[in-house]
Design a protein around this nucleic acid. Structure first.
Lengths: 114, 114
DNA sequence: CTGGATCCTTTAAGATACTG
DNA sequence: CAGTATCTTAAAGGATCCAG
């Protein structure tokens, strides 16, 4: 039963993918639909083009986001979630509600010094 | 409805907590029960005492693990999960099964070049 | 045994200017 | 508009030695 090690690795892998400063923020924007590069740059406040590109490439390479180019006058690129990417949403939602709850608990503990 | 920002923050927070190279590994050992420092050092292969201490402190500070000292001849310290920490298990399990599935898909895509 | 302190290397991230 | 390149800083992690 040492596929535990295996699972550990996958877990670490996906945590690494989702970790970092920007991934979640970017994904949360893409859950509302496709976005152009510039849109993302605007909406993911504080990110630099270099970081945005890097993160998008990361996500693209594991097929969580999709990149589509249009040969318009100034080139247009749209990013969107793949089917795989969409399956991530419930997970993220659950994690979110856990974190949310966790934060509340944590706060109430700190404020319990009355 | 900009509690979205709030949720994003909690998500990032917990992802940061769980992220890094060792947290998950350590937690997965603690799910089997309390462990002494040395036991963890042995079981979490490759970790240095410095890292182990740091990670344990991180987890302790957010009340996910519990630290209990015993005034034995050479001092003994036992680490275990708190109630909060235990609530993390289902989340981790779900994440794990997702990652697992994701990895399989990903592999089959790569091998589909027949 | 448990853990702190120090030094060093590697990786993540930020700023900014530049090209097709 | 979309993306690169370069340079710099900050943070994570590793190695090792030391102390209660």
């Amino acid at each position: 039963m040492n596929n535990c090690e295996n699972k550990l690795e996958s877990l670490q892998f996906i945590l690494q993918v989702l970790g970092g400063k920007w991934k979640i923020h970017i994904l949360s924007k893409l859950y509302f639909g496709k976005k152009r590069f510039k849109e993302l740059e605007r909406e993911v406040t504080g990110i630099s083009p270099k970081m945005l590109i890097k993160e998008l490439k990361d996500l693209e390479s594991i097929k969580i986001v999709n990149r589509q180019t249009f040969n318009t006058v100034p080139i247009t690129v749209e990013y969107s979630l793949t089917t795989e990417g969409l399956t991530l949403k419930p997970i993220l939602d659950q994690l979110m509600s856990w974190s949310d709850n966790f934060m509340k608990e944590h706060q109430s503990v700190e404020n319990a010094s009355t």
